[in-house]
């Protein structure tokens, strides 16, 4: 087949590079979702730790003789 003219070929080249860009962006979006989940897990762990610390402090106060 003869070479396509620039205006015709440009569409295919743009489409190919856009596919690559889309793949990378989709990947980054999925990774961002995972990062949000890690952040949520971290928040839950912090809450649990704070809860444990508060419970331990309460226990300590109750066991101290007056």
């Amino acid at each position: 087949m003869p070479a396509l003219p620039l205006d015709e070929a440009g569409k295919y080249v743009a489409a190919a590079y856009l596919v690559f860009l889309a793949l990378v962006l989709i990947y980054v979006a999925i990774m961002a979702g995972r990062l949000a989940r890690v952040e949520r897990d971290l928040g839950e762990i912090t809450d649990l730790l704070e809860q444990r610390t508060a419970e331990a402090e309460d226990d300590e106060r109750e066991t101290v003789p007056r």
Binding site: A3, L4, A16
Partner: peptide
């Protein structure tokens, strides 16, 4: 590219 023209740029990707 002399044969394929501008569309050959896809090859680099």
């Amino acid at each position: 590219d002399a044969d394929q023209g501008f569309i050959q740029k896809i090859f680099y990707l």
